[in-house]
Amino acid sequence: MKLEILSKQELDLHEKVLKLEGTLEEKSDKVVYFGISKQYMEIYQSYSELVAENIEAVKRGLFISWYSKVEPIGLTGIGFLQREAEEQIFRNIDQRLGSKNVDFELEWMLDHYSAWNFAFGSISEFSNLKKQLEREIKIVPPSLVEMSEMNGRGQMGLYWKSFE
């Protein structure tokens, strides 16, 4: 239930960002002014609190962390994220990788995101995650991803559906 609420909040914020007008810089300023980035920070915090019990929260938190570093705030609505929340998400991924408690989707997501290595500059303490991101052999995101599975998954779902 909580994940459904967070997804709806994400999609509502995304719609607000899409309606912003002006240059990218002006949109970025508006994202902050209207509190969109603050609301996104709260959503991210909520995902970080759910990672121990839910791999979907892990995936969405990972996506938000990565997306915040590779796309501008004026396009995503995602600005500053709490370091503690990011560490909690990365720690959980690191533990899951160490105990081989990951699914295929999380693995190919990690491999996809690893192409933007600058987005993961703060992971040196998470050895399993670091190894996963640096490995030579990558899993290519499946070309036959069932796009209906991406519904209700916040901006992460929108991102993956954009590959249709």
Rank of each mutant, 00 (worst) to 15 (best):
M1H: 08
M1W: 14
K2W: 03
I5N: 05
I5A: 15
I5C: 01
S7N: 11
D12H: 15
K16P: 02
V17N: 00
L18S: 06
K19W: 00
K19P: 00
L20Q: 03
T23W: 06
T23P: 13
E26K: 03
K27E: 10
S28L: 05
S28I: 07
S28W: 01
K30H: 12
V31L: 02
V32N: 14
F34T: 00
I36T: 05
K38F: 07
Y40C: 00
M41W: 08
I43Q: 11
Y44L: 06
S46M: 04
E49W: 07
E49Y: 02
V51D: 11
E53P: 07
N54M: 05
A57L: 11
G61L: 09
L62R: 08
S65H: 14
S68K: 02
S68I: 14
K69C: 05
V70K: 13
E71W: 03
P72L: 08
I73S: 02
G74T: 12
G77C: 09
G77S: 10
I78R: 02
G79T: 10
F80N: 04
R83W: 05
A85W: 02
A85Q: 04
E86R: 12
F90M: 06
R91D: 15
I93F: 10
I93A: 04
Q95A: 05
S99M: 09
K100N: 10
K100A: 05
K100Q: 01
N101L: 12
V102M: 15
F104N: 10
F104T: 10
W108M: 03
M109D: 04
M109E: 02
H112E: 01
A115S: 15
W116Q: 11
W116D: 07
F118V: 12
F118T: 02
F120S: 00
I123H: 04
S124I: 11
E125A: 07
L129N: 06
K130R: 11
K130G: 02
K131L: 14
E134H: 13
P141W: 13
P142T: 15
P142Y: 11
S143D: 04
S143E: 13
L144H: 15
L144V: 06
E146G: 09
E146P: 07
E149K: 12
N151V: 08
G152E: 11
G154R: 13
Q155W: 05
Q155H: 06
M156L: 12
G157Q: 10
Y159I: 00
W160M: 15
W160F: 11
S162F: 14
S162R: 09
